[in-house]
Each structure stands twice: as C-alpha cells, then as structure tokens.
C-alpha cells in the first residue's frame, strides 16, 4: 500500500475524523479572518483619517505582528484563558490584523487627493467621500491584505491543535507523537490544500474588487512600463 493510500485511510479513519477536523480548521480560520478583517479595516480607516501620528502606530503594529510568533500569543492567551476554541481564534485574529490594517491604511491614504478635493467641493459629505470614493478605490488593496491574512491564518491554525481548539493540527500532533507519517500527512496535506485554496479564492476576489476604471489605469501603466 502506497503512502498516499495510507494517508487517505488515516484521513478517513473515524478515530482521526479528517473531515471533522477539516471543518473545525475552516471554521476557526474563517472566524479569526472575519474578526481580523473588521478590526483591520476599521482601525486602518481610523488611522488614515486621524493623520500623521497614526502612521507610526500602524507601522509599529504591522511590524510587531510580524515579529511576535503566533505560538507565543496563543501561549500567553492560554495562561489567562481556559483551553479551547476562543484562545486559538483570538491568537489567529491578532495574527491576521496587521496585513489588513496596513493595507486599509495605505489604500485610503493613497486615494488621489484631487478626487477627494473635487468630491468635497461638489458637496459630498465626509461619509459620502468615504463610502463612494475612498473605500471603492482602497478596496483592491484591502482585499489583498485579507488574502495575505487568510493564508497566514489557515497555515497557522494548525497550532490550534496544541490548545485544544481542534483543527487539522490535531492530526499532525497525533502523528508526530505516535511516529505515524501517514497521520502527519493526513493533517499536513489538507492544510496545504486549504492554504492554496484561500490564496486562489482571495486572488479572484481581488480581481472582482478592482473597479474596471482602475484595471485600465494599471493596464496603461504596464504598457508604458514595457514600452
């Protein structure tokens, strides 16, 4: 029996419950991603509106997020909270914020000042400038941030197995503990597939989120670049 077949057996074995773990993994990732998106977008917009001082904060948070390992965050949370779904979700949520926050901030800041000035001069309220001009123009970049976060969260959610939050990490840990390569793979391969799927889905979303008028701009820019 090939290793692949053994892996498939381990995955479908009711004791390992590969499908159930996959569903847990996805649920945990989506929860963390949804919360991180809301927090990242709200904080990013706020920072962009508050002004220059906020840039320092955004950059610091962005760098901190990259420096502190999620495992450490989860460890710290576990010290203060009981084991389970939420400590893991909160750890992943914190991991997911920085890319979205930084992109939302940059996206709003990079909106053509002329378009903003003209909008205000034509009588759009601040809220209308945000919802009709700034957000549509920043959306592609925000979705790109969500895409980065999604892949990071899906991959890192494997650690959730350590703190009793379930997910495919449980299989990886069990396989490592019992020295069963096929069980490790039954956890690791679906994680890899999920990460690639997340990448593909959000890459598609990014295309959809890019208004036609902006795609043209980029097309022209590329043409000029190659000319």
């Amino acid at each position: 029996m090939s290793l692949l077949q053994e892996t498939w057996q381990a995955y479908t074995d009711p004791l390992n419950d590969g499908w159930g773990r996959t569903v847990e993994h996805i649920r945990l990732s989506l929860t963390a991603l949804a919360l991180a998106t809301v927090a990242g977008v709200v904080l990013g917009i706020t920072a962009a509106k508050v002004g220059r001082g906020a840039a320092v904060v955004v950059v610091t948070i962005g760098n901190l997020g990259r420096m502190v390992p999620t495992l450490a965050i989860i460890g710290i949370i576990v010290v203060f909270f009981p084991l389970g779904f939420w400590p893991a979700a909160i750890g992943l949520f914190l991991l997911g914020i920085p890319p979205i926050l930084v992109n939302a901030y940059t996206g709003i800041r990079d909106v053509d000042p002329g378009a903003r000035e003209a909008s205000r001069g034509m009588g759009l309220s601040r809220r209308q400038v945000l919802t009709r001009v700034e957000l549509p123009l920043a959306l592609p970049l925000i979705v790109a941030g969500v895409r980065t976060s999604a892949v990071e969260i899906v991959a890192t959610a494997t650690l959730a197995g350590l703190v009793g939050a379930g997910g495919l990490g449980v299989l990886v840990l069990a396989g490592l503990g019992n020295n069963q390569t096929e069980v490790i793979l039954a956890g690791a391969i679906p994680v890899a597939i999920l990460a690639v799927l997340a990448e593909l889905v959000f890459a598609g979303a990014e295309r959809l989120a890019t208004p036609r008028g902006l795609r043209i701009t980029r097309g022209l820019a590329t043409q000029r670049g190659t000319a």
Partner: peptide, 23 residues
C-alpha cells in the same frame, strides 16, 4: 449648510479629480 451650498456651486480644479472607478 456647506454640502447644500457646494452642490449649487460648480467646482473645477487643476488636478481635475475625476473618480477613476466611475465612467
């Protein structure tokens, strides 16, 4: 109100400031 006023006054600027995502 500033918004009401600005809707009654045409505004043209050097940078034009067309909305790039709108036709």
């Amino acid at each position: 109100s500033p918004h009401q006023l600005r809707r009654r006054i045409g505004y043209v600027i050097q940078q034009v400031g067309l909305m790039p995502h709108l036709t």
